[in-house]
Amino acid sequence: MLASDPVVREFVIRWEAMGGRSYLASGRDDLLRTCQLALRGVVWNQPSEMASDTVVYWNTPDGLDLDWVSITPDGVAVRWIPWTNTGEMRQITAGSILGITGCAWAVSSTGSVALYSGPKTGLLPSVLAPSHLILVPREKIVATVAEGLQRVPRDLLPPLVKIITGPSMTADIEGMLVTGVHGPGQVIAVIYEC
């Protein structure tokens, strides 16, 4: 059970301490339902002035080839755009409400997820959209940042490696914490086992 798994619990505690949100899902159907729930939250909480209906997602095995269109909540129009390695993806992603990505690994002791840039795994959905949902398979969670970094292929280094620990934040005005300054104000981890 994920909920009683100490590694998962540590990850969730740390991730949420940094201001992230998290969901647990067991099995494919549960995962789809959970993502739908998360998506509904994103749509409802979206500030009206940036109303958008676009979701950009990684079309990779991390997404388990999920039929994303099928989880569109009732009464909500969503444009589902799979990430492709094309120039127009920048503006599309910048205008989206949510980016959905997988991860290369995650760290329980810090509540972090790591992404590698690649043709199918663009980093822009993780930074341009106001919300970011990350699919975290249980087996990708390691205990320490050091263990995670050991997994990075040194002989074939990705040009960009990114470790995310919570939402984009700043305390530059009077030391008051504000989220969503440049990157997403909301980061959602869906930890699953299938």
């Binding site: 740390r14 940094m18 760290v107 002791s109 810090t110 509540g111 972090s112 940042v145 280094l157 990705p158 040009p159 960009l160 490696v161 990114k162 470790i163 995310i164 620990t165 919570g166 939402p167 984009s168 934040m169 990157g183």
Partner: peptide, 14 residues
Amino acid sequence: QRLSSYTTIVSGTR
């Protein structure tokens, strides 16, 4: 914090 929100490692070109 145990880690900053964003750690970016640049090791090569596009």
